[in-house]
Design a protein around this nucleic acid. Structure first.
Length: 576
DNA sequence: TCCAGGGGCGCG
DNA sequence: AAAGCGCGCCCCTGGA
């Protein structure tokens, strides 16, 4: 069953009509007028016997509805995000023949993600702008859109895969809202102490911290450039050239290769400068409130289906600041990450039994060595990354023929994806998310290379564009399917955490989910659960079981393992 | 004064 | 040890 909440009045966003729909999306009765989020509350205490099947909430955008429910201490079990689902179904090759895919663009295609609602009393810095963007009235007929989507799935060439993908994507939206609501535990005092320790005390606005200024002075001295601003790349490059340091850029990687007295202080300056500007006191003031870092996740924000994040650089948290992520007293952080996720996904996608066998149980890169494909673990890693990213040069390129000999099916799959991209075609992940077509400049560039009078310059431009797009589609199938595994992992874990016996006290309303084990952070192939210490081991088991379940959902009985590294720690920096 | 684009670097 | 994929965010620069 589905339930659709509809706002009835711009003046009173809490006043809603809830329409219940059957499994095909057809209305079951007349809508009931009620208040949001009261509507999500089940009977309390729960009646005895098996729980009634719960509804799947259908809405235009999870962030327009769910945060209010969370703020009221409520949680929903299942959702269907129409905006996210429309985006998938509109572009998937599996739905290409359906009415939905062939219909003209409409308002559902134009929707932009709604920012997560601010937690009362903990407004985000840009909260004022958020309010203006939020839709005060519901879009026309979500029920009709649900029926279009269900029909597109049913008439697609992969209904099972797409049903799973839409459920996983929508569950991801629920998880993202929950994690923004709960926040990542953050010790401002420890962060501040770490900053002062390496940078010197916090300086007045506009000044460099003492340690950074001292390093800048050392750089100026070493280069004999008293007026140099080391933050200016062009200036710095000019001075480096004049001093005969012999680098083509000011990049870290270039600088590390030359021997000159300026290198050490300059690299240190760059490292600390980065820490200051990206995760310094300013960042702390802006993003951490009340002991929690609340990033905003953008579900489906990356073309491949990975999440993106807005504000605070949540998906780029440097290892250097992770010691400030500390569990509450009496609680633990259960930190889990999937070992060698992408090569395992590739083994599953391609049905490469030999490669799956190399990943059995433990370290897949070591397994590749043991299979005799290459000599060292480092070679296995570089070679596999090269195969999935389209590397051709250096050691990565050298490993390719050996990997292709050992794992022909896997390597053939990425090669096929690359060639499809080079032809300008679309590729599709395991569950049915398709790559975008090449951009508007594609035809022009390709056309100008075939012209009779084509210059060699135009030809090489076209060739380079072709190969770049091939590398993109090559990676798309692997990265995108890995993102699907991660969504299934989270969706499964979310259900398992809610079902933990400690979470359900008979005869009492469920406690807010932040008082039970709950997810607080997600990073592509890594998840953090904040849990009472006595439940941490149980949570770790559920995380592993969820990983195994995700593998089964994507690859059925195909014997590819997805082992996890799980650590139960007090602070994030102690994991791995 | 504003903004787009480049260089650079953090994460997976 | 290589420089191949996907992101967000910082500073600086130069043009409007």
């Amino acid at each position: 069953m589905y339930s659709v909440p509809l706002r009835t009045s711009p003046a009173d966003p809490g006043l809603v009509d809830v329409q219940d729909l059957d499994t095909r999306g057809e209305p079951l009765a007349t809508p009931r007028r009620t208040r949001w989020p009261d509507a999500v509350l089940g009977p309390v205490p729960a009646p005895p016997g098996p729980p009634a099947p719960t509804t799947r909430w259908v809405w235009d955008d999870t962030n327009l509805w769910y945060p209010a429910a969370l703020a009221a201490g409520r949680r929903v079990e299942r959702g269907h995000d129409l905006r996210l689902s429309r985006a998938i179904l509109r572009h998937s090759t599996l739905t290409a023949g359906t009415a939905l895919a062939q219909a003209p663009r409409d308002a559902w295609d134009e929707m932009v993600p709604v920012p997560t609602a601010p937690v009362p009393g903990l407004e985000r810095p840009d909260a004022l702008f958020d309010l203006g963007d939020r839709r005060a009235v519901s879009p026309p007929d979500p029920g009709a859109e649900l029926r279009r989507q269900l029909e597109a799935v049913a008439t697609s060439s992969g209904p099972g895969r797409l049903r799973l993908l839409l459920a996983a994507e929508s569950a991801g939206a629920l998880v993202a809202a929950e994690m923004s609501h709960a926040g990542l535990p953050w010790r401002e005092d420890l962060h501040d102490a770490m900053l002062s320790g390496v940078l010197g005390p916090r300086p007045p606005l506009g000044l460099r911290p003492a340690r950074l200024e001292a390093l800048a002075e050392q750089v100026r001295t070493a280069l004999d450039a008293p007026a140099l601003n080391p933050d200016s790349a062009p200036e710095l490059l000019k001075v480096l050239e004049y001093a005969g340091v012999g680098v083509k850029s000011t990049r870290k990687w270039d600088l590390e290769r030359v021997d000159h007295p300026v290198v050490a202080p300059l690299l240190e300056y760059k490292k600390l400068s980065r820490l200051l500007t990206a995760n310094g006191w300013n960042w702390l003031d802006t993003w951490v409130r009340g002991g929690r870092f609340r990033p905003e996740y953008v579900v489906g924000g990356v073309v491949t289906g990975r999440w993106a994040a807005n504000g605070g650089g949540a998906l780029q948290l440097p290892h250097q600041v992770r010691s400030a992520v500390v569990a509450d007293p009496g609680w633990k952080l259960v930190v889990a990450d999937a070992a060698q996720l992408e090569p395992r996904v590739l083994a599953g996608l391609s049905g490469d039994l030999v490669m799956a066998e190399a990943g059995r149980g433990g370290d897949m890169y070591q397994g590749i060595v043991d299979a005799g494909a290459v000599e060292t673990r480092a070679q296995a890693k570089i070679g596999m990354l090269g195969a999935m990213y389209g590397g051709t040069t250096g050691e990565s390129g050298l490993m390719l023929p050996r990997l292709a000999k050992a794992f022909p099916r896997a390597l053939e799959l990425v090669e096929q994806a690359a060639r499809a991209g080079e032809r300008g075609e679309i590729v599709t992940t395991r569950l049915g998310r398709s790559s975008p077509p090449p951009g508007s400049g594609w035809e022009e560039t390709q056309g100008s290379a075939y012209d009779e009078s084509a210059s060699s310059d135009a030809q090489s431009r076209a060739r380079s564009q072709t190969r770049a797009w091939g590398r993109f589609t090559r990676n798309f199938v692997v990265q995108g399917t890995a993102a699907e595994w991660a969504l299934c992992w989270m969706a499964s874990l979310r259900g398992r955490l809610a079902a933990m016996p400690q979470a359900q006290v008979p005869g009492r309303a469920p406690a807010p989910f932040t008082e039970q084990p709950h997810m607080v952070f997600f990073l592509h192939d890594e998840i953090i659960v904040h849990a009472p210490a006595e439940l941490a081991e149980h949570v770790a088991d559920e995380i592993r079981a969820a990983g195994t379940e995700a593998g089964k959902l994507l690859f059925g009985d195909f014997p590819v393992d997805f082992p996890l590294t799980v650590a139960i720690v007090d602070d994030y920096s102690r994991a791995k």
